[in-house]
Write a protein that binds this DNA or RNA. Structure first.
Lengths: 222, 222
DNA sequence: CCGCATCCGGGGCGATACTG
DNA sequence: CAGTATCGCCCCGGATGCGG
């Protein structure tokens, strides 16, 4: 709210994004796409409703968020990122990558958790070992939600789980799922600790990181 | 100071970095290297001294900053980034890149300015058109300070200006210098508005962005 | 139900003064 | 030089109310 009063691009960016909850709000809009007020609130456990409203107004004034009244059948207001707002994907992902090591100790008591927050580690660590293979879907169930990871033509996409049936399902506490997704744990090791992998196990192993499988194509520059 | 209480890598990162002044303090340590308390204060105009002390303590507790008592001859305390802290270069640069468009309108009345803040645009926009040419030094004078840009063997380095003589010197208001460094203004156009380029003009043009010169090597994937 | 506005207590923040 | 001490103020957090 209060400007740093510095003619510096970082200070200018923080003038718009540095307030509490602001970058987490951008996270929700990046991960969920256009969202209703209530869904944003659900993705930001702990936020005071007046603050959420005020942050949305500030971001709108800054040209980062656009408000859109959905057509009558649903009659809801949607908040979406503008193109300028979507350019925040890089900085936000960079910060989230930096934060991944802070997750290894598991959630603190009382920590909230949403499955779609795992999207950042997914985009960082997962890749399709058989990019030319048939499309594959892996669902991760942790907490109340589920996260769906799709690979098609070598492209990885994520979305809300629970809707379409997946080829394989990973279920268990967030810490174990994240350890597996980030390659810190092998699937078999995670299962010893309580992770449950059902469905097509090969489909899961095709996307998960770990020691290269036989005949896997390894990119040169990676 | 207060945790978001979310088991999410971005929220965890902001738990450590989200407080006011924290990321700007990291900026100073990234740009200046190991620094004394007083120098940090000078690079953070507007900060309250108790806040600076408290932020340094928090970052130290988080393993991002290390305190080091310099040997007797100078008898000063130095603050430096740990390796973990240096990993913040990516997120900080990404945020600073995002903020560059916020600079085109020039400084607001009363805005502070330090020449070394221009390092971010330099790293983003400048490259050496003659990487195999002799080493070249360009000094940018804006405000009280100066920024030295060195190119040697195709590698670009920046440092405090004013010490060693440079091949070329750009002097003028920050807005004009930044416009020129970012390629928004051609050198000739900026000079019309009041920028002063002295010394070896070709040395400046070799580093500045703009339309490719004859015979310039253009990289394939860029 | 959705999208807020209002009210109030506590603490982070800003500015200045002061000290080993 | 490198901080600590103190004091308002305003942001933030939490709860409640309320119009569409």
């Amino acid at each position: 709210v209060r400007s740093y009063g510095q003619y510096c691009s970082l200070a200018r960016a923080l003038d718009l994004l540095g307030d509490r909850w602001t970058l987490l709000l951008v996270r929700e809009l990046l991960l969920r796409g256009p969202s209703r007020y209530t869904d944003l609130r659900d993705g930001l456990p702990g936020v005071a409703t007046n603050l959420l409203a005020e942050r949305l107004r500030s971001l709108e004034a800054a040209g980062i968020v656009a408000r859109e009244d959905a057509p009558p059948p649903v009659a809801a207001t949607l908040f979406r990122l503008t193109p300028r707002g979507r350019e925040l994907e890089e900085p936000v992902q960079a910060l989230a990558r930096w934060g991944v090591p802070l997750m290894v100790d598991g959630p603190a008591p009382g920590d909230a958790f949403r499955a779609h927050w795992m999207t950042f580690p997914v985009e960082q660590f997962l890749h399709d070992r058989l990019p030319d293979g048939p499309p594959v879907r892996l669902e991760c169930r942790a907490g109340e939600e589920a996260l769906l990871i799709e690979s098609e033509g070598g492209e990885l996409h994520t979305g809300p789980g629970g809707a379409a049936p997946a080829d394989a399902v990973l279920a268990g506490p967030p810490q174990l799922i994240l350890g597996t997704l980030s390659g810190r744990l092998q699937l078999a090791d995670a299962e010893v600790h309580g992770l449950i992998c059902s469905g097509d196990r090969a489909a899961a192993l095709r996307l998960l990181p770990g020691p290269p499988a036989d005949g896997e194509h390894v990119r040169d520059g990676d």
